[in-house]
Write a protein that binds this DNA or RNA. Structure first.
Lengths: 356, 356
DNA sequence: CTGAAAGCGCTAACAG
DNA sequence: CTGTTAGCGCTTTCAG
């Protein structure tokens, strides 16, 4: 560290200007003579000035609002994780002159999404974070926000065609490819089953589609002979699901490998536990409480998870920097880690995903 | 959020005392009448006061020094990761009224460690972070620091018998157990080889010992028949290492499973690549640049890594809280995640481990 | 034991 | 275009 902290005063003195001007230069505000700007820059450079964030934040009266547009959730489902991450980001944000709000919509209802967008427009925040579901509507939202000068960050998944500042999330295709390599890498079976979720609305873009492509691409490349069965479950119809699975496994008693690309592998774990099936290799996604349990009990072998908290925090940071300094994130698409959880390491993740 | 931020003034007004007294109460400083203390507490409670960290930090003239006691490193080895984490924590620490220094010693020389401790004592910081190697000397250091009221945090590994404030690191035994389950879980082989590093000094406590125990415990539990060969390599003697491995694999051409418990799996990767061996299952630890490369090339199958940056940051945070507010960390032993890296997900980790 | 007052480094508003 | 000034909310003297 330096002998003494360099302050605006120092650089004002050195450049022969006032702290007012120094401030203006620092923040690229208009109304500074080119000559002065140069002098100030030079002084900052030579003294190695760094902004005291605490003082800055304290003095800054501006207050930014960031709004998160997310699917609503029921207890125990995927979006709850995201929502918790928002809550935690909210706490972090206090004291940073920015507040984070949430606007939710039923992910299966395009109407609700559009309505949520209307509400967003009615009380436009300074920045927006979106977990996109409806692709076209999201693109449109992007246009609108662009025009208003409101930056948008994607988390969870992205709509590449939209105007956005940055994306923080896992690479979807790769997550499926990874899934295949884990599940099928060691002793490739002859056939496997993919349990999917019946989609009601049908219009919604399914982000897990790319994931399934990643999986099937791995298969075409490495195991062209592999047969993949597709079966459909319902989020809340245990009886129906059990019937589906009973029927399937009766017809295919040899199948030992199960994959799901959504977060509901616990539906399958429930079935396996209840029926007492043995020797199954099951892979699923997302660190839901019930999924954790299934891994701990050895029913699910692999759980691929993302760091929702980190993703959101990075998104918020990117927006904060943009708002405060006009900084554009160095990378537009930020692909974050996909963690592989198994029985032997999962216990050291739960705390982290809850809070850290 | 509240309508308006609650400040010391508000609670001073409500309690009928001055902000000076309020401040004294907030920080449990002495010299406050019991009656006043009560009133202030009450007011804080009822208004839901929260400290404005920015203002606090800005006004606070105290400056804390944290010293990290670490093994020195050569480019590309494990301790470089830790050192980089310190450097990054240093940057974070600026503006938090605390500075982080590093004191290094040759990990193979107990003398150097003792000398480093002397230097530490000579210019005692307000808090200490230690990556312990010499167990007894560390215990002694703990006694000394305890007496001086200087808190100590362990990272990387811990000495359970010592007096310490908290530990942030992976669980060593479990990391070995995990290694075994990954390497041996699917199609257990008959025999495997463990390449170890010749230890010069011999007195140094080897933290990877617990890891090896975790591995062998898994084996005793699940694969009692498994034969584990032990061979010894040297960190910087490629020729010698190649001779050792040539000899070993000539004698055991059937062995396909290799594990190392230290960070130098790249030594083996180098050998495998050079000799063009095929079909090896190799597992190693730590996200060194050369190890990453070996995974990307498919030579190393599993790399188990820890989040050095996060661990250090948590350690620093714990100390900062202790210094500023006397807060004791909720958990003393904080076991952090062990990430499993394979070819298909490793590319999304490197950035994170570099900086995040 | 308590209150008053002087900043911490920066930003914003207002004069020039 | 530039300088001055009044705080932001808190901590820390220094008097009482």
């Amino acid at each position: 560290m330096q002998t003494k902290k360099v302050t605006v005063k120092d650089i004002a003195r050195l450049s022969g200007l006032s702290i007012g001007t120094v401030d203006r230069v620092m923040h690229n505000r208009s109304g500074v003579a080119e000559e002065s700007r140069r002098k100030v820059m030079e002084a900052m450079e030579s003294l190695g000035y760094t902004l005291n964030t605490n003082a800055s934040l304290l003095a800054n009266k501006k207050h930014y609002r960031i709004c998160c547009l997310l699917p609503s959730f029921e207890s125990g489902d995927y979006w709850e994780l995201v929502y918790n991450a928002v809550a935690s980001a909210q706490r972090d944000a206090e004291g940073y002159n920015l507040s984070i709000e949430t606007l939710t919509y039923n992910q299966f209802s395009r109407e609700e999404f559009i309505e949520a967008v209307e509400r967003l427009k009615a009380d436009l925040p300074q920045a927006v974070i979106v977990a996109p579901i409806y692709r076209n509507d999201t693109i449109e939202l992007g246009h609108y926000l662009k025009e208003k000068g409101v930056p948008m960050v994607f988390i969870d998944s992205k709509v590449s065609e939209a105007d956005y500042l940055a994306y923080y999330g896992i690479p979807m295709w790769e997550s499926g490819y990874l899934a295949a390599s884990l599940l099928l890498g060691d002793e490739p079976p002859q056939s496997i089953v993919n349990f999917r979720i019946e989609r009601g609305g049908g219009i919604a873009d399914n982000p897990t589609l790319a994931r399934r492509h990643g999986f099937t691409d791995y298969v075409s490349e490495n195991l062209p002979e592999l047969r993949i069965y597709n079966e459909f479950l319902r989020p809340h119809d245990r009886e129906h699901n059990f019937a589906v699975m009973d029927k399937f496994f009766a017809a295919h008693p040899d199948i030992r490998h199960i994959v799901t690309f959504n977060s509901r592998v616990h539906l399958i774990a429930d079935y396996i536990t209840t029926r007492g099936l043995k020797g199954m290799s099951v892979l699923g996604f997302d660190i839901l409480g019930q999924n954790i349990k299934a891994v701990q009990e050895g029913v699910v072998k692999y759980l691929i998870v993302q760091r929702t908290q980190v993703q959101l925090r990075r998104g918020v940071n990117a927006l904060a920097e943009w708002l405060a300094f006009g900084t554009i994130p160095p990378l537009k698409d930020n692909y974050m880690p996909m963690d592989i959880l198994v029985k032997e390491n999962i216990n050291f993740y739960s705390e982290l995903y809850k809070d850290n």
